[in-house]
Design a protein around this nucleic acid. Structure first.
Lengths: 244, 244
DNA sequence: GCATATAATTGGTATAGACAACTATACCGA
DNA sequence: TCGGTATAGTTGTCTATACCAATTATATGC
């Protein structure tokens, strides 16, 4: 019995504590890559919890790709991926920091407008409803990386101003609605840079760019933000993970 | 009691049957968008199963984004997204059909080679290990859409030949190993087309292209395929979903 | 009429046990 | 040697129950 590792009176659920312990054991190579970890029944006696609780922990680790199960055989430690993609929704700031660069930002425009029809449709707005329109130059290590155009429905966050936009919009939104931020749909395409953008990005006016259009939704499916970013192709690759 | 909807002696697990029924009820607008579905306890008496079984169904539907839960309040039907991205790993064939176009393909090269070092590293191969190297022109509605270069370790599928590659590689692999195919890591970038590719894609030699490099893994984390695709930027957008 | 306490309802966590489906191994008999 | 069978161990599914935590509805008191 090694159940001293668990604090059953903690406010942290037991199944989360067990997840952490298993991750730790994989990291310490107590459980080796390609080999099987102890069976669910054995772990449940080790931790002195029910098998279903252990199952919940393992299910989460399987969903995150760290383990995989084979019926009738056991549960195994998966091979780690070479390059870990960014998980889930991240801001430009987080993205650049994860790449080891120092992000900075400059607001070119901040105003209230009636959006083009295609933007209004994507944000599920009536044609006359207003949005905040923000244009920013995004730099990494003081060199321009992207130009970013953001549309946020005024009705979602009427108090928004040029100062608030500097911080984390996601945190603001999550605090205002008690809902969490759900998911996003992203469109990616290649193009030649627009002439007006080329001078801000400091690239030739025939240079290629990666255009990413992202619509973000609250967990009830209401869209709250549309961002259209134009990245310098010579400085930016987008990395993502696809699950089957 | 409406439990006649369930076949408890079916080989299909009950929680999957319940998932299907709930999806059906959402589609029939018996459960409306934004409104709450019956509580877990009520559903468990409706179907005459335990609450934990209903919970398993609902958990899966929450993970797929169809429902969302709020503690103390209930479980709600989420807003559907405007454009559904392709779920999970898909082949060029599936991708094009989903876009309403008819895919075709032409093999330009099929040979066994020792891969460049960067490819070998991505596929976790020793420097001298061989791979199958396949170059294909991928067309949609008879117009060239992309040029695709695929690397498959010989040791993964030694019997591979030019005929087998025409069908579904994924199905072949899943049959050979009893493992399922796991996930993939994808890199996306914009560039100007290579001169040698421009004539196959029938575009100007200064045209932009979208380059997608994808490494696919078995569920134990072993890579089995690396594909580098060059898409015409004027004909192709990549759409994906990001979960928080 | 309005605040405040209380009860009821909801999803979140956890238990203990049962049987099914599948895999690997050992064993036996032809 | 080959092939079937028994057995033990694994994950997969499902039940019935219990208590906790967050929210909402209701009753109570001023």
């Amino acid at each position: 019995m090694v159940q001293d590792l668990l604090d059953k009176n903690s406010h942290i659920p037991i199944y989360i504590q067990i997840e952490e312990i298993i991750k730790q054991r994989i990291y310490l190579e107590e459980y080796k890559i390609g080999e099987n970890i102890p069976s669910e029944r054995e772990l449940s006696t080790q931790f002195d919890v029910s098998r279903m609780t252990v199952r919940q922990s393992i299910t989460n680790l399987v969903n995150s790709g760290l383990l995989y199960r084979e019926k009738g055989r056991g549960t195994y430690v998966a091979n780690p991926k070479l390059e870990q993609p960014l998980k889930g929704l991240t801001s430009f700031t987080e993205d650049m920091r994860a790449r080891g660069m120092e992000p900075s930002s400059k607001v070119l425009r901040f105003e209230k407008i009636v959006p083009p029809v295609d933007i209004a449709r994507d944000l599920m707005l009536e044609p006359s409803e207003e949005v905040f329109f923000v244009v920013r130059i995004r730099s990494a290590d003081s060199k321009p990386m992207a130009i970013e155009r953001t549309y946020i429905p005024v009705k979602i966050y009427p108090e928004l101003d040029e100062k608030k936009i500097m911080g984390s919009l996601y945190a603001l939104i999550e605090a205002k609605f008690h809902q969490k931020i759900g998911n996003a749909i992203q469109q990616m395409e290649a193009a030649i840079v627009l002439k007006e953008d080329s001078k801000f990005l400091q690239i030739n006016h025939t240079a290629p760019v990666l255009i990413i259009k992202r619509t973000s939704y609250l967990s009830d499916g209401i869209p709250f933000e549309l961002v259209r970013s134009t990245y310098r192709a010579d400085r930016y690759k987008f990395i993502s993970e696809i699950k089957r």
